[in-house]
Write a protein that binds this DNA or RNA. Structure first.
Lengths: 152, 152
DNA sequence: TATTGTTATACTCTATAACTATA
DNA sequence: TATAGTTATAGAGTATAACAATA
């Protein structure tokens, strides 16, 4: 019998620590030096071909200006391209460059290996529990996916 | 039977999303507008009276300059104080101001309520699983707590 | 008028390099 | 010389406000 409050406390305690580990692994040279938002953006655009800026912003939970900056950086690094949308000229179409794809893959692989390596210290039962917990948390935190519109 | 690789993938997928939720709640006015690193710093110094800068840096996994900046901001906002250490004059002693304590409490309460609210959509079993998963993850990611010293 | 996106501005996070002061 | 901390500098994340262009 664990209350929502207890679980909340655990999340608040543990999640930032995992996050810091993921972040520092991604920013290390061996995983190609991406920030977490950059990584997530690349991964999203890889999955969702020709996304618009709004698509990315919505997925990331960021404002349009923030997302525009983020994409600027990726383009400057030659990891992404921004083209006009043929039918609606307000929009842009984002895509990964070959290099962006490669960098994403290296980063993904490196980070997964790093995490898997740490997780291999746990038992198969523990990992089963982690899988279940993540499934629950995914549904809790991804449902809504709201952009928490500014209240004005 | 879940492999370390599968669990790694789940973590990489879900953890950043939870993190973003926590961050945006903390930065909202209703939870007193702290960043996550600021929150964690205040919480650490509250727990560890008269910490030195190095103590904080070590706990946070940050370099000394980064930590110095972070603390600067908290002091400028009147949430913390920095005093000389009586016996070793290279060191500093950090402490929360009354206001820092209050802001931390409000932020903590607000964030916990926000998370608990979301988690209350889950079953008691699910939360039990989350608690277990967090316990495992805590041991995996907190052991070492290493500052990954620059290789230079 | 509503939607899509960019620019301007301002903080914060974080790192490396170079430095000061104390032990 | 080694340790504790700060300052300088720089790139990235993020927001709000103001704007331009298209629908």
């Amino acid at each position: 019998m664990s209350t929502p409050e207890e679980s909340a406390r655990e999340l608040l305690d543990v999640v930032p620590v995992i996050m810091r580990d993921i972040r520092s692994e991604m920013r290390s040279r061996r995983s190609s030096d991406l920030t977490v938002p950059q990584f997530r953006t690349l991964a999203f655009v890889k999955r969702n071909k020709e996304s618009s800026l709004s698509d990315v912003a919505n997925h990331m939970g960021l404002t349009l200006p923030s997302t525009s900056r983020l994409v600027d950086g990726l383009i400057m690094h030659g990891l992404m391209t921004r083209e006009d949308h043929p039918s609606d000229r307000r929009r842009i179409r984002l895509a990964l460059t070959r290099r962006g794809l490669a960098v994403l893959d290296v980063s993904m692989q490196g980070t997964l290996e790093h995490l898997a390596n740490k997780l291999s210290a746990t038992g198969s039962n523990d990992r089963e529990v982690i899988m279940k917990a993540m499934a629950t948390l995914r549904s809790v935190f991804m449902s809504g996916s709201r952009v928490s519109r500014a209240v004005k």
